[in-house]
């Protein structure tokens, strides 16, 4: 199964909802519309030839300068039968950071979606238990969004002049 065959199969089934398919670092990356995320993932999982049964990873990403597509969710899938890995990306505006949860397809998405919510504030619809998982519970912002500084504000021993800040 080649990258082209996977792309053709998806385009035949979903048409416009497959926005882009590129190969980067020998890995097929498919950008889909966020509204159809579950349908595409279900197709990839259950199609007899594709058989992407394993959700390797799920994470968020923030491109603050992509107008109306600032936030994204990245799914890494693995077809163990064919030994092929692909990336599936879905982008949506940061004003309305909502996407349907993949926990109905893979239970392992649960903690990964909690982590994505914890760091990017992405809301996963129908997630059974969407709350912070790694950061302190009373944190009042989403630290991986690029408008927030990486450094901690309470640091005292760093002299800005000596550290070029």
């Amino acid at each position: 199964m080649t990258h082209q065959e996977i792309t053709d199969k998806l385009s035949a089934a979903f048409g416009e909802d497959i926005i882009e398919a590129v190969v980067s670092y020998d890995m097929l990356t498919i950008i889909i519309s966020a509204e159809k995320n579950l349908e595409v993932l279900l197709f990839l999982r259950d199609d007899k030839d594709l058989n992407f049964h394993f959700l390797t990873d799920l994470c968020g990403i923030h491109y603050p300068f992509n107008a109306d597509n600032e936030l994204g969710v990245v799914y890494h899938l693995h077809s163990m039968v064919a030994n092929i890995r692909i990336r599936v990306k879905a982008f949506f505006p940061s004003k309305d950071p909502v996407i349907r949860s993949a926990t109905g397809l893979w239970l392992s998405a649960g903690w990964m979606e909690r982590e994505t919510f914890d760091f990017y504030g992405i809301l996963f619809e129908n997630h059974p238990d969407l709350r912070r998982i790694l950061n302190v519970d009373d944190m009042d912002y989403y630290p991986m969004l690029k408008q927030y500084p990486l450094e901690d504000g309470t640091r005292e021993d760093k002299d800005d002049a000596m550290f070029g800040r």
């Binding site: 950061n135 927030y148 990486l150 450094e151 309470t154 640091r155 005292e156 760093k158």
Partner: peptide, 17 residues
């Protein structure tokens, strides 16, 4: 003692806080 190299949002900047 001070947070060390981990000047970041997730690390306590010294236990004397």
């Amino acid at each position: 003692s001070s947070g060390g190299i981990f000047d970041t949002y997730s690390v306590l900047q010294g236990i004397d806080k």
